[in-house]
Design a protein around this nucleic acid. Structure first.
Lengths: 128, 128
DNA sequence: TATAGTGTAATAGTAAAATATAACACTAGG
DNA sequence: CCTAGTGTTATATTTTACTATTACACTATA
């Protein structure tokens, strides 16, 4: 997995797991891969994985069963809450940053529509 | 100035200067504050300021005149380019992250409109 | 020419994330 | 009871951003 060196790896792993759960690639109640396996898959250290999982466990989206593994919460409502929270965080960050550049509400919406439209006709990768 | 501890300080300073220039708080051709003064204002080290300014100078949005100071480029086109690039980067990041959560194009637009609407009737700060 | 104000850069030290490695604790199943 | 698979934790080390400090280079001007 490729990481953005401007953001802590454990934090990027946390967001990766969020994504897996929210998109259903990891289902409610499902056992997630073992920490040592995740460390191999993501080519990071076990402790780094553990730091990410620890926060997810604290938030209740994962449950730890010692000796058995880590499991996605059964509570679909918790997952929905987290999804909504993440969506709002994304919008908030983008919105605040553009407002700091004096871009108005209407301009933000217009730019977004244009971006989406352009995206369908242009090859990707120009803003990575 | 308050910094996000998940992002390098020099990088946040760079974005801060971008904002000052794009919004015209620092005008084309204008001398920006001395590096030592910026360090005091932002409560960071001179070297950290210098690292941010160094990148802005490399990009041509700032010009360094040894013994005199650092100046915003006179070239309005360069500034416009940078503004557009920053806007697209913001949209791109938000868009990619939401798509990774299986949020569709239409849903992104709808969520944004809702976010903007809610923002006008709700007290701020809930997504910081 | 001396000085104050400016950018530039090097050195050494600090702090936090990440790593490598090892050990410990618990569970299920043979 | 032993073992394999799992989570948990600790120690030492490495890496890098950041800091503190100092020095150097250039410019305008008194």
């Amino acid at each position: 997995m490729k990481f953005d060196d401007k953001i802590p790896i454990y934090y990027q792993i946390k967001n990766y797991i969020y994504g897996q759960i929210i998109t259903g690639k990891l289902a409610p109640g499902e056992k997630i891969p073992a920490v040592r396996q995740l460390a191999v898959d993501l080519t990071v250290n076990v402790n780094t994985v553990q730091r990410a999982l620890g926060e997810l466990i604290s938030e209740g989206i994962l449950e730890s069963r010692r000796g058995l593994g880590n499991f996605v919460t059964e509570d679909q409502a918790t997952i929905e809450e987290v999804k909504h929270k993440l969506i709002m965080q994304q919008l908030h960050e983008m919105y605040e940053n553009l407002h700091d550049l004096n871009v108005t509400d209407d301009e933000i919406v217009a730019y977004l529509r244009q971006y989406i439209k352009d995206r369908r006709t242009t090859k990707d990768g120009q803003y990575n």
